[in-house]
């Protein structure tokens, strides 16, 4: 493999990883607050449909991305009302959200199937971007890619360095103690859910605006579920999300190349490789750390203020 091809492969790995990073980091914050939102896939695909439509109509990828985020947040707010406001089972509400999202995206995007628009521009810095091998990889990505790394850094900083982040982690660890001390359990959880929705919506918008760039129904293809698995894979730590997303993105891209190289294995089997790799990684991790699970202790438990 020549350096030029290798660089191209690495570029595609990064772009495949970006939507996973964005969606997973949002879900990570939600789960750190103690809420399990299984609706990532649904919020993501509505973000993809609406994001593409808005970008197509306005001609601006920024407006598209904002529309995608807003769409994710609207669905997340619905989830928040059910699970935080009414203390409904989070698993059931999350699954319902995914089903609603997939259906809704088909409706919203119906008029945009087959339409095309240009991907947003990639960064170009004279000389730097022309450097061999690393030039395009480091200095030639689009705004989403850089934005995703800024997002991870900001979340890591927020969770470990700020008082609000500390309160959020405390609420995810033990909501009864948090309530007894006067921390706003419900408000914090609702805001965390909204943040998760915004991230999922933006991840979806990235897919339809920059990654493909077009809208087709079902285009998220399970990435929302992968993002959920990545949160577990990362042990709820932000930078490990990046690592996991790159590994999964790598597996996705490599199986494409393996298919192209016609190894004689059925394409369907190779397409399943990244998903099998995810399951394998989760198994290895959970066997290795059987008792040291880093999951927020109150994850998935509805909170009802005691008497």
């Amino acid at each position: 493999m020549t350096p030029a091809i290798l660089e191209l492969v690495l570029m595609t790995i990064v772009t495949a990883a970006t939507p996973l990073i964005i969606a997973a980091i949002g879900e990570l914050v939600t789960e750190r607050a103690g809420v399990l939102n299984l609706g990532v896939e649904g919020m993501m695909i509505v973000g993809a449909a609406l994001g593409f439509a808005a970008a197509y109509l306005s001609g601006s990828p920024l407006i598209g991305a904002l529309a995608g985020m807003a769409a994710g947040m609207v669905l997340a707010a619905l989830f928040g009302l059910l699970t935080v406001g009414l203390a409904i089972n989070q698993v059931a509400a999350g699954l319902a959200l995914t089903i609603v999202g997939v259906g809704l995206s088909g409706l919203l995007g119906a008029g945009y199937v087959g339409l095309k628009r240009d991907a947003p521009p990639h960064l170009y810095i004279p000389y730097l971007s022309d450097l061999p091998f690393v030039g395009k990889l480091v200095f030639g990505q689009d705004a989403f890619v850089y934005g995703s790394f800024v997002l991870v850094a900001a979340v890591a900083w927020y969770l470990t360095r700020t008082r609000a982040g500390l309160a959020l982690r405390a609420i995810g660890d033990n909501h009864h103690s948090a309530h007894a001390l006067g921390l706003p359990v419900r408000r914090t959880r609702f805001l965390a859910i909204l943040f998760g929705g915004a991230c999922a919506g933006m991840a979806g918008a990235y897919l339809s605006i920059a990654y493909t760039p077009f809208w087709s129904p079902g285009m998220t293809a399970g990435r929302g579920w992968i993002a959920l698995a990545l949160v577990v894979f990362s042990s709820w730590r932000p930078w490990r999300v990046v690592l996991g997303a790159l590994l999964f993105g790598g597996a996705t891209v490599l199986q494409l190349h393996a298919q192209a190289a016609s190894l004689g294995l059925p394409g369907q089997l190779l397409s399943a490789v990244p998903y099998l790799a995810t399951i394998a990684a989760l198994m290895v991790l959970s066997i290795g750390a059987r008792r040291k699970s880093a999951a927020p202790a109150a994850l998935g438990q509805p909170f009802v203020a005691p008497r």
Binding site: A170, D173, H176, S177, A178, A294, P296, A297
Partner: peptide, 12 residues
């Protein structure tokens, strides 16, 4: 105790 098991003493 209204403490958080997975936080440190100082964080609590």
């Amino acid at each position: 105790f209204s403490l958080f098991d997975n936080l440190t003493v100082a964080e609590n």
